[in-house]
Design a protein around this nucleic acid. Structure first.
Lengths: 253, 253
DNA sequence: AAAAGAGATTGCGTAAATCGCAAGTCTGAT
DNA sequence: ATCAGACTTGCGATTTACGCAATCTCTTTT
């Protein structure tokens, strides 16, 4: 009988806590010592956590830090209301410049979720009000996120059925793969009548610490009115806004 | 279900992710359906997570939300540098009003860790520079956090040895219990020469979603200069700042 | 109020993951 | 080259988690 009545899950969590509380990366031996585990046991636990991307060992190093999946979980627990405090001003800047609706979207499972939206005053239509689920294959802000996920994520997404919202919605695997390549090369996603009819939308990935893309920032307007606006200027402003947002959202080093 | 990694840990994590992604509480059946688990299996998983305080079921309800330990873990992954983006302006407001040093502290294990500090220009002394570990029984911002932890946490903290920093540091169990009661009743903690000699400090708990206290906001100054300032005005401003910070850190619970 | 139904909980035999330990491998410093 | 410390892998024995089905507990319906 061991003195500790620890179940497996408890030990995993304690490893995560040990890593999280350390300001810098911790080594296997650190963890084993801290938790009074045999090195072999610590190694097995860590290996399981790394396999799930809860821990990460930076290239070549033998120390461990919080993995992307933990970061993702952290952001997932943030309430939508919390974004206004530090993202509103960035969106307001875009609204002021283009006179169209701007929004911030967050990856949430298999959708992008709009978490904050700002509109020009007197705007009649709310395209992307907070809470709306934006499909990753059909919305500009969704595509901007999808295009920068890893291959596992993309492959898994493509195995599932995808809704065809308009006759322009791309749903085929090849079509979406091509679109992803285009977005990666260009740095910005476009959605022209692919989700809502008559609506044109641009989306740009937001990179947080470590380069992970959990968010995107987008501008949306009625196609007829929005189309004439110079696309390179939109891209420039969106990339600036994304860099700003990434700095504000990138809690983790 | 003949899918991917079905090791036990993976299922636990997927339950946590399901709960985190839901804006509101999710029920056992929701989780079972989402993850394609049998209700009995889902129940067992959830039970294990609740036992570790990773999930929480609000009084009497049958739905689940992120537990205190999960929130604590996730916040621990945040880098200190990340707080500047959305907490600096709040601290600056306090500095401008009182002309003393303001800081944000975060619960980290058995200490409160200063994660952000702002000072009046030309200030000569850095009381609580980011990274400093503030003891939960002797620093105002530490006490403000300790007083709002649950009984288990407090009891566990009191079993460990506590350093006596000055002759005014309260180290006895009864003394600390009384201090906790006072802070709970008053809503604010005071540290008068209990940690650093000649230094007077106030700390106020920051409640994030669900009412949990993982942070505190504090003002610190030389006792001789700071003591004359009206305490009720300090309390008012600190509580406003805490409410603002809680909103910005707005996490669901 | 009684019945029906959905959701939540418990028990059980079986299958699988984890356990501690020990023996191996790697790495970097002397 | 050698050595010490850190990391990794392998092995039965044990513990835990597994799916399923039966039971319990509510809320809703009649």
């Amino acid at each position: 009988m061991s003195e500790t009545n620890d179940k497996p899950l408890s030990r995993y969590i304690r490893v995560l806590e040990t890593v999280a509380h350390a300001r810098t990366g911790v080594t296997l031996t650190d963890i084993a010592r801290e938790l009074e585990l045999h090195p072999g046991t610590a190694h097995r636990l860590i290996r399981g956590l790394v396999a799930l991307d809860l821990l990460h060992s930076p290239a070549g190093t033998k120390s461990y830090v919080a993995g992307a999946r933990l970061q993702s979980l952290l952001h997932a627990t943030m309430d939508r209301a919390g974004y206004a405090a530090f993202a509103k001003s960035v969106l307001d800047g875009l609204v002021a410049e283009f006179g169209e609706t701007a929004h911030l979207a967050r990856l949430s499972g298999d959708f992008a979720e709009s978490v904050l939206m700002e509109q020009p005053s007197g705007s009649d239509r709310a395209f992307v009000q907070p809470g709306r689920q934006l499909p990753l294959h059909a919305a500009a802000s969704g595509k901007a996120i999808l295009a920068f996920q890893d291959e596992d994520f993309v492959a898994r997404y493509l195995t599932r059925p995808r809704e065809q919202f308009t006759e322009r919605t791309k749903v085929g695997e090849t079509a979406i793969r091509n679109e992803i390549d285009r977005i990666r090369a260009d740095g910005m996603a476009v959605c022209d009548n692919e989700l809502d009819s008559g609506v044109l939308s641009y989306g740009h990935p937001v990179r947080i610490g470590g380069g992970q893309v959990l968010y995107s920032v987008g501008i949306t307007g009625l196609a007829d009115r929005f189309r004439p606006i110079d696309r390179s200027r939109i891209k420039l402003r969106l990339s600036e806004a994304a860099a700003d947002l990434g700095r504000r959202l990138g809690f983790t080093g």
